[in-house]
């Protein structure tokens, strides 16, 4: 067989890879080296000017990045804890098990933007039902207008929306676990807590790491929730990186600069998620 023919079979996949991955990233890098904006449309070449501006004169991007890190880590941690608890609950033989399994998945099936609009209505401080109910107890928290509580509100909405995803992955993991280790633990007289600590949790570690990383990647793109709930406010207290890049790119039409922000953000995310996954492996999977 002609050696070169073998490579011909790679071309379809290669073309797809170039079309959907290499070209967009390449174009983004090229765009980031231009000053394309409203007034000067076009791929001129300004070198690393956009990157210099980003690293020396844009504290707002870095603030939004650290805020995003806080929101991502907090939401994913809560999703993991709640999702794991719910999965453990319906893993056992409980009444209406199937009903609960479907029920817990419903938030994930809804459209995020629509649900965020509904949540915004719930949390509306003068017209929403949440404060209406809380006012019975004499409290009316400023859900969206206090810089700390606004973050909490975003966390609540994100956790509600995406815990089912974590639940789904972890339940699938639990259902695939071998029965023998649990039988052995029972023979040894281990109670439910010991079984969880010494059997369930270690066996679930690889799946947990996968689920956490997948959710961290998704959570690092928090945008629609922020856009609908607070527009990054009050002030800049809930602005995240993706929202900031959206503002610079599609609101202010600074395409060149927003491409530089996007590429930098991509690099940071690749590095930090690689480190996080290595740390999680080290922490959770003992040799």
């Amino acid at each position: 067989m002609n050696f070169k023919h073998k490579f011909a079979f790679l071309f379809p996949g290669l073309f797809v890879l170039i079309g959907i991955l290499i070209f967009p990233i390449g174009f983004m890098i090229r765009l980031s080296l231009s000053s394309w904006d409203t007034f000067y449309p076009g791929l001129d070449f300004i070198g690393i000017e956009n990157y210099v501006r980003l690293f020396t004169d844009d504290s707002r991007f870095w603030e939004s990045f650290f805020r995003l890190s806080f929101l991502s880590v907090t939401t994913v941690s809560l999703q993991y804890i709640i999702g794991f608890s719910l999965a453990l609950m319906v893993w056992r033989d409980i009444i209406f098990k199937r009903f609960f399994r479907v029920l817990f998945l419903i938030p994930m099936m809804t459209t995020p933007v629509i649900m965020t609009v509904i949540w915004r209505t719930f949390f509306h401080e003068s017209l929403g039902p949440v404060n209406d109910i809380l006012s019975i107890f004499g409290i009316a928290p400023p859900w969206l207008t206090n810089e700390h509580l606004a973050k909490v509100t975003i966390i609540i909405v994100e956790v509600w929306q995406w815990t089912p995803f974590m639940f789904l992955l972890l339940l699938a993991g639990l259902l695939s676990l071998p029965k023998e280790p649990f039988l052995a633990a029972s023979v040894d007289g281990a109670g439910p807590i010991r079984k969880f600590i010494y059997v369930t949790f270690p066996l679930m570690a690889p799946i947990s790491i996968g689920a956490i990383i997948i959710r961290l990647i998704e959570a690092s793109k928090i945008m629609d929730t922020v856009y609908v709930l607070t527009s990054g406010g009050p002030g800049t207290s809930t602005e995240t990186s993706s929202y900031y890049i959206f503002v610079k790119g599609l609101r202010e039409f600074q395409f060149g600069y927003s491409a530089a922000l996007s590429f930098t953000y991509l690099i940071i995310m690749i590095i930090s998620l690689t480190i996080i996954s290595k740390l999680l492996v080290k922490l959770l999977i003992k040799k």
Binding site: G235, E252, F253
Partner: peptide, 23 residues
């Protein structure tokens, strides 16, 4: 003016920081 959104966006960010008590 050209790039009007950049100017008005800066006003929105600055004034909202003042309304939120950040500055």
């Amino acid at each position: 003016v050209p790039g009007v959104f950049q100017f008005t966006s800066a006003v929105a960010v600055g004034t909202s920081k003042a309304l939120a008590g950040q500055l």
